[in-house]
Nucleic acid binder design. Sequence first.
DNA 1: AGTCCACAGGAAGGGCAGGCGA
DNA 2: TCGCCTGCCCTTCCTGTGGACT
Length: 419
Amino acid sequence: MEGFIPLMFACVDTGMDQEELNEMFTEYADKPSVFDNKEALTTNWNPDEILHRDDQINELASILAPALKGEDPSNVFIYGSVGTGKTLIARHVTGELGSVAQNQEADLDVVYVNCKMKKVSDTEYRLLAELAREMGEEVPNTGLSTDEVYSRFFDALKGQESVVIVVLDEIDALVKKVGDDFLYNLTRINDDLDDTRVSILGISNDVSFTDYMDSRVESSLCEEEMIFPPYNALELSEILEHRTNEGLKNGILEDGVISKVSALTASEHGDARKALNLLRVAGELAERGNEQNIAADHVDRAQEEIERNKIVETIRGQPKQSRLVLYTILRMLEDDDTDQVATGEVYSRYEEICSEAGESCITQRRVSDLISELDMLGVIKAKVISKGAYGRTRQISVDHSSKIQRQLKNMVEDRFYLA
DNA sequence: AGTCCACAGGAAGGGCAGGCGA
DNA sequence: TCGCCTGCCCTTCCTGTGGACT
């Protein structure tokens, strides 16, 4: 998609007429694809067989099984790094549980919410509203008090005579943002319900996440805990093999591609999600280049493309002042031909750039927060260091290839000055 | 050991936009 | 229309910090 938009504009610039455009699309449609079922190389796909997670499936299933008899299962907490199969297993097990419950006419509801979804469930209000909506209640996006939304969710639950399993994915992100009060309320909701039993299945990418929680919340939420270990290179290879058999045409993959992808991702916390993305994008690059096979070189290019897209998407969602701060950093790194800058220097240059552009300046305190945010988003790297009598500061650097760095600067410059 | 610097970062709250219910 | 709510971006005020310097 990323390469597609400039192509559309190129058509306008070069005066490509409708017929040529039509021809181009027809040619594209007729071109043989390297994919058989591209969805199999995405994280949304539910594979018929889940590899290397039998123990976790069995454990989770045995914890949730009492729901079939109308008993409320223990609250469960699942930890593990990104791409270790937590969401896949949670969805798989609750999905199967739902099917069995339907066959046996048992009353069981499963509600899934990703707590990191921007504008959907990234605040207490939004999460409760989303849960209430999932239970069939109408809740506006804003305008009500949080207490009102909570009581609407509660009313929706009261209307049921069943067990409700609430799956809260990426719960660590929300707790870090708004605190754990909402979890305290949710874990105590059963005290006020007569016929409905609510069980919470929390999923977190952060193993040390419970440090942020009140001990009372922790003890009731983490009645059962499961830790998902990262996949090793061998396991990743087998998972990729399984997915590519479904997703790619036979004989498309050159030797060594799967082992390269699995070695690359195993060294970075065994992230299966990243491994699948790498393979899919490598396939897309091969297809775009009219090539018949996916080679190791496509994997390298895919890695760069994924990194660039991730950063570009992140920057798109940032407010103007954040882009301005980032632009200041990138311009300093380029102009001063250095690989790191300090907060104080960035702020001085930021003030100059603001006055050049006729923009209003924000305070150093706020700029400091924006630098932290950009660091958290992985756009820059900021490390707090002490220079003794010369104070404390953050050393800011950008850890991308110079090509990506240049593209980034141009993009921020365009978005800042032209937007 | 005490001082000092240049911030980091927590806490509290202001102002505004967007939205809802009465 | 008005009062109230949340979310977001921001400011102000303040305390804390780590290592070089005295």
